[in-house]
């Protein structure tokens, strides 16, 4: 940021007891620069994370899959004629199913087979936790990057919007 002050021949408020009228704007510009810098760091980290998992997401956490509640299809819900999106067979009474947090429902055997391979819902890609520390780290960074994107947008709107 030094170059910003050099280029604009500013002294960074040095020696002025009174807050200058444009100081809050400067602070906000500085804040934006900090956010941008952090974002760039995050991108580098997530690229590395991505490489380490070779593009394909890891299986869902064993514990999380075990803890998914089994739901038996009731006569009433069997009548709705809904089908399992994995095997494409309609649910019938007494079928054992599991419902993911995104509310998508599958036969237990179908979804458990899938989650042993990839951690996301086959319909909407809602992600379940995994047992892969690298992948979890990358996900945290991604979530933070998203949060920053939101902050930047808010900041940008407050300045120019």
């Amino acid at each position: 940021m030094a170059s910003y002050f050099d280029e604009h021949d500013m002294s960074n408020g040095e020696g002025s007891a009174q807050p200058r009228p444009d100081q809050s704007l400067l602070l906000r510009i500085l804040e934006m620069a900090r956010l941008l810098q952090e974002e760039m760091d995050v991108e580098i980290v997530s690229d590395l994370g991505f490489m380490s998992v070779s593009g394909k997401a890891p299986p869902a956490s064993k514990k999380v899959v075990e803890e998914l509640e089994t739901k038996l299809i009731s006569p009433a819900s069997a009548c709705l004629g809904k089908q399992c999106a994995i095997c494409l067979v309609s649910f019938v009474e007494e079928d054992e199913t599991k419902v993911l947090p995104c509310n998508h429902q599958f036969h237990s055997v179908c979804i458990v087979t899938w989650l042993k391979q990839v951690n996301s819902c086959p319909i909407c890609r809602y992600e379940l936790p995994t047992d892969d520390p690298n992948y979890e780290e990358m996900r945290k960074h991604k979530a933070r990057a998203k949060q920053r994107e939101y902050e930047q947008e808010t900041l940008h709107n407050s300045m120019f919007g």
Partner: peptide, 10 residues
Amino acid sequence: LKDQWAAAMT
């Protein structure tokens, strides 16, 4: 057709 395949695709 590679790593973004999902079992609900047809």
